[in-house]
């Protein structure tokens, strides 16, 4: 069953992005569908809404765009 740590929610995404910069793929790995119980489409949609709300900073690391937040 999904635990509070694997649930896809704004606070969980915020915690990850404060800890370290992450690509979209890094974030998707943290919220795998088999753990959250969401479909792929739901995961993409929810994560997009959360990122729009958080409006994280962006920077390129090794030519890949990473999101991050400061506390």
């Amino acid at each position: 069953t999904p635990s509070s740590q694997t649930a896809l929610c704004l606070d969980a995404v915020r915690r990850y992005l404060i800890r370290k910069p992450m690509t979209t793929k890094d974030l998707l790995k943290k919220f795998q569908t088999k753990r959250t119980g969401l479909s792929s489409e739901q995961t993409v949609n929810v994560l997009a809404q959360i990122l729009k709300r958080l409006n994280p900073e962006r920077k390129n690391i090794s030519d890949k765009m990473h999101f991050y937040l400061t506390e």
Binding site: L27, S40, E41, N45
Partner: peptide, 20 residues
């Protein structure tokens, strides 16, 4: 699979492109 992850990442980036 990694290809599904790639597809999801691409879809997510496409969603965010309008915004970014």
């Amino acid at each position: 699979s990694s290809s599904e992850a790639d597809e999801m990442a691409a879809a997510l980036e496409a969603e965010l492109n309008d915004f970014m």
